[in-house]
Design a protein around this nucleic acid. Structure first.
Lengths: 114, 114
DNA sequence: CTCAAGTACCTTGCGGAACAAGGTAAACGG
DNA sequence: CCGTTTACCTTGTTCCGCAAGGTACTTGAG
């Protein structure tokens, strides 16, 4: 089922996917990136399971890269299916976002002046 | 705990509160209103527990009104605490909404041209 | 009255999402 | 060796929202 409600729950999935689509990245870094964009809501314990889920669904793939000052990093790269899913999610997000915005502003038939 | 992540989960709470803030309403009707605004994601089984939670937190209060063609309706009206909470939620929503939008569009420092 | 349908409310059982907390491992400096 | 930072992963718990089920009031058909 592609219920829009899943969109709300899957907002983090979508954000992670969008981040990876921009540039391959790794979990530890994504937490920082999310903050830069205004979403300081994620902890590592949230991100890693999410990344695994995304990979399991075939949206992304991971590969290890040696790091200079620490353990190897697990980078993730977007796959065609992920790109496709991201487009759909982005579209759904627009719909929901607009809907919520409309409700917050009094709705199209309510009017902000009413 | 005022984590923004709760905002994503609590989007329905917020929408219901916004609806009630506009005009007192009752559960059965709110489902329809949500649809009018583009959110067709809610069923009655979702709304009623939400309404109870909102009331329990002191954001709204319910009162019964006789109905012509059916059982009495339980209208909800917003309370000062609810009004206040709604303002905060709306503000947080803006932040998160903008953040997600930024991520979807390539981010402020990423650029759509990469 | 009985049966069906529409309005309106509420609860229970289930699965998924995110958090908090905890554990493992590699590199650097004292 | 030990402590800190970087970096990854798992487990236990809570909360959310859906699907399904149940109750109650009113109107219309037979």
């Amino acid at each position: 089922m592609e219920h829009s409600s899943q969109l709300l729950k899957g907002v983090l999935d979508m954000c992670l996917l969008a981040l990876i689509a921009e540039d391959p990245s790794y979990g530890y870094e994504m937490a920082s990136k999310l903050e830069q964009r205004g979403l300081e809501l994620v902890s590592e314990g949230t991100i890693y399971p999410l990344l695994s889920r995304l990979q399991k669904k075939g949206y992304i793939e991971g590969y290890f890269v040696e790091s200079a000052g620490g353990p190897p990093r697990k980078y993730y790269r977007i796959l065609p299916d992920g790109s496709d899913r991201l487009s759909r999610w982005a579209h759904e997000w627009q719909t929901v976002s607009n809907g919520v915005g409309a409700i917050l502003n009094g709705g199209p038939n309510g009017g902000s002046r009413g």
